[in-house]
């Protein structure tokens, strides 16, 4: 049984960027990392980032490293 809601979901489904593009997850690549944080500087969840589980985990680690090196903020309150 297909509800309209499901159909909308499947139309939106993304493929993991790091699987399809020759990109590397690197904590020093600040511009790339900043694309995966929200406006409140939270890490974007997988349903929004569209990444596969493997790369989402790598990305989360990388973003935390970036934050530690003061390349990205932890919050907007700094």
């Amino acid at each position: 049984m297909e509800s309209p809601r499901n159909r909308r979901y499947f139309a939106k489904k993304k493929v993991c960027r790091f699987c399809t593009e020759p990109l590397e997850i690197d904590y020093k690549n600040v511009d790339l990392m900043s694309r995966f944080i929200s406006d409140r500087k939270k890490i974007v969840p997988r349903r929004n980032s569209g990444l596969c589980a493997f790369h989402q985990r790598q990305l989360a680690i990388a973003i935390k490293r970036t934050r530690y090196m003061a390349l990205l903020p932890y919050t907007v309150l700094h």
Binding site: K28, R67, A70, L71, L72, P73, Y74, H78
Partner: peptide, 11 residues
């Protein structure tokens, strides 16, 4: 040297 840049928060 990698870069000189402003920090995301003060240290």
């Amino acid at each position: 040297k990698w870069a000189e840049r402003s920090l995301a928060y003060e240290i």
